[in-house]
C-alpha cells in the first residue's frame, strides 16, 4: 500500500459491517461527502477536502492504523477504541459520540439461569465456582473492558475465553459459560436464548472520530483537516436539534409586534426577533416576515404562538449547521495537543 505524501491526510472509514453506510451518510449530512468511484475500491476522495485520501478498512484495523500512525484520522466504533487503547498511546478521541452506530457491550447469561439476574448474582456464582475449583468462563472479543469492569465490581474469579465471531453461541456450544458482547437491539441474544444482566452494561458505544496524537501535533494539513471536520461535525450536531422558522405576520407597527414576541420566550429568538417588511401596492408595510430558530421540541409551541400572533403561513426547515464563535471540540483538541 502506498503511503501518503506530506500533503495528503489519510482518513480511514469503516468498510464493512454496520458502520459503513451510516458513516458515509453521516459525513454527507455534515457536508463532507465521500466520492467513491467504484464501490469495490478501497480508496476514495472527499470533494470538500482535496488533501484527504479516504481508505476503507475494518473497524478494528482503523483503530490500530491510527494508533500506529499509518493513518492520521479515522472513524470507527468507540468499543474498538476503548478496548484497544492503553495509557500513553497515540490515539486521541476527537469526538466520542457521533450519534449513530449505537450499541452496548453487555454481559449475558443463558436464559435458564433463574438465579443469575444481576452482577451481584454473578459475583456469588463466581465465588461459589471458584471454591469448587470450577472456572467461570466468559467468552468475549473485549477482554480488557470486561476484565476491568468485573474487577471494578469486585468480581475476580473468572477466565476470559477470547473468541471471534458467533460469541453468542459459546454457551450453547459449551466453550464458555456466559458471554460479554456487543448488542444493539438484543435480538441476537434472545435468539440464542441468552439474557442480559440487569446492570450488565459494560460500555455504551457509538461511532467516534479519532486521530493520531503525534501526527496532529505536527500541525499542518492534518490538524487543519481534523479541526475543519470537527467544526462541521459539531455544527451539524448542534443544528440537528433546531428548526428554522419563517412566518408571515400581518402588522403595521413592527415595534408593537416585537414587544408581543419578546413576551413569549418560545418565539423571542436568541437576541430578539428580526423582521423583513412586506409592502402592498401603495408602498405601505402591511406585514412582516419573522425568522427565528427554535429547539426541535419547542417547534409545535412556536407554531401555536405564531398563529396567535395572526400568522398566515409558517415555513419550517431543518438547520444544517450552527457554528458558534468558537468550536468546543476544536478547543478540546488543541488543549489535548498542548496548543492553545
Amino acid at each position: 500500500m502506498f503511503r501518503g505524501t506530506v500533503e495528503t491526510v489519510r482518513l480511514a472509514l469503516p468498510s464493512k459491517g454496520q458502520l459503513e453506510e451510516p458513516t458515509l451518510a453521516f459525513l454527507e449530512r455534515c457536508g463532507m461527502r465521500v466520492s467513491k468511484t467504484n464501490p469495490r475500491q478501497y480508496l476514495a476522495r472527499m470533494p470538500a477536502f482535496p488533501q484527504v485520501e479516504v481508505l476503507f478498512q475494518r473497524p478494528a484495523d482503523i483503530f490500530t492504523k491510527v494508533r500506529d500512525g499509518d493513518v492520521c484520522l479515522g472513524i470507527t466504533g468507540f468499543d474498538v477504541v476503548a478496548e484497544g487503547r492503553s495509557d500513553g498511546d497515540e490515539t486521541l478521541v476527537l469526538y466520542e459520540n457521533l450519534g449513530y452506530g449505537g450499541c452496548d457491550l453487555v454481559l449475558a447469561v443463558p436464559e435458564g439461569w433463574l438465579d443469575v439476574n444481576c452482577l451481584a448474582d454473578l459475583a456469588d456464582l463466581a465465588l461459589e465456582w471458584w471454591e469448587q475449583g470450577r472456572p467461570l468462563r466468559i467468552a468475549t472479543k473485549y477482554p480488557n473492558l470486561v476484565r476491568e469492569f468485573l474487577y471494578r465490581k469486585d468480581i475476580h474469579h473468572f477466565t476470559l475465553v477470547e473468541a471471534s465471531g458467533a460469541i453468542e453461541a459459546a454457551p450453547a456450544i459449551g466453550y464458555a459459560d456466559l458471554i460479554a458482547d456487543i448488542t444493539a437491539t438484543g435480538t441476537t441474544l434472545r435468539e440464542n436464548r441468552l439474557k442480559q444482566l440487569d446492570d450488565g452494561v459494560i460500555l455504551h458505544s457509538e461511532a467516534c472520530f479519532i486521530g493520531n496524537r503525534s501526527m496532529l501535533a505536527r500541525g499542518g494539513p492534518a490538524l487543519a483537516v481534523a479541526e475543519q471536520m470537527l467544526e462541521f461535525i459539531e455544527a451539524h450536531h448542534r443544528g440537528r436539534r433546531y428548526r428554522s422558522i419563517l412566518a408571515n405576520i400581518p402588522c403595521h407597527e413592527p415595534a408593537a409586534l416585537a414587544r408581543q414576541m419578546l413576551d413569549r420566550p418560545v418565539v423571542a429568538g436568541l437576541r430578539g426577533p428580526s423582521f423583513l417588511p412586506i409592502y402592498d401596492a401603495n408602498g405601505d408595510c402591511v406585514a412582516v416576515t419573522v425568522s427565528i430558530v427554535v429547539r426541535e421540541e419547542q417547534l409545535h409551541q412556536a407554531i401555536q404562538e405564531f398563529r396567535r400572533l395572526g400568522s398566515t403561513e409558517v415555513i419550517v426547515s431543518p438547520v444544517e449547521y450552527i457554528f458558534s464563535a468558537e468550536s468546543e471540540a476544536v478547543g478540546r483538541l488543541r488543549r489535548a495537543l498542548g496548543k492553545n
Binding site: 447469561v109 443463558p110 436464559e111 435458564g112 439461569w113 468462563r137 454457551p171 459449551g174 459459560d177 441468552l194
Partner: peptide
C-alpha cells in the same frame, strides 16, 4: 423447556 437454555449448568 429451560434445559436447552442452561448452557453449562
Amino acid at each position: 423447556n429451560a434445559e436447552s437454555a442452561l448452557g453449562s449448568r
